[in-house]
Amino acid sequence: MKRYAWLVPALYIVFVLLPIYWLLNMSFKTTNEILGSFTLWPQEFTLDNYRKIFTDPTWYRGYLNSISYVVINTVLSVTVALPAAYAFSRYRFLGDKHLFFWLLTNRMAPPAVFALPFFQLYSAIGLFDTRLAVALAHCLFNIPLAVWILEGFMSSVPKELDETAFVDGYPFWRFFVRIFIPTIAAGIGVAAFFCFMFSWVELLLAKTLTAVDAKPIAATMTRTASTSGYELGLLAAAGALTIVPGAFVIYFVRNYIAKGFALGRV
């Protein structure tokens, strides 16, 4: 029985890879071939779909927009989360437990609930259809996540480190930036990874808050309509390209994936 145990993860990985393979398969086919027949690999291999995406601004702008707001959001979320997590980790203050809990509840809010209110809010302050709007909106659930993760890592750093630095005469910010942050570098990596991930994949809010200028790749993709059959190859290529940043990021953090999920709190 034990000898066949490896089949379980193996079969699961095959299951995981099948739809990705199918997508890639489609992306290298012409529309004619897709609609005309069912083939397991392209009979007429073509790079046209990819070519179109790299040359047509409406397409590649979509990627640039998406990457922009994701990066802005990640940097913003982690930056403001750091001092806050430090506060939660080291100090008790009025309302600290309630504040922490309130932060976590924002993760529980269905994005659907915020679609309309966000639309009105960001329109009202003139940020509609900007990348900044999406970056800010994603803070709603990314900041609590970053605070939660960072606080976990910070709590396992002994307070003696802080005290030693203060006794040695370090002003707070110098200690924080030059001593503390390097110590929790792994935690920052994990938090940044999750912020990147959740912002990159979230699309309801991204579409709601954008129209033309800051349109994320998701909106561009739905424009071609999925079941209509037209431009399926193009759609597949666009989709395939959205997997690339994710694959890249995973590859870089591959050594920390298991460790990252094993946060001190978990």
Partner: peptide
């Protein structure tokens, strides 16, 4: 290898996930 391959579905934008399964 296992961890990286298994983590892939988690990093695909959700609309692409939907599109993939639609096409599939």
């Amino acid at each position: 290898v296992c961890l990286v391959l298994m983590a892939m579905p988690l990093l695909i934008p959700w609309n692409v996930v939907g599109a993939m399964w639609n096409i599939l």
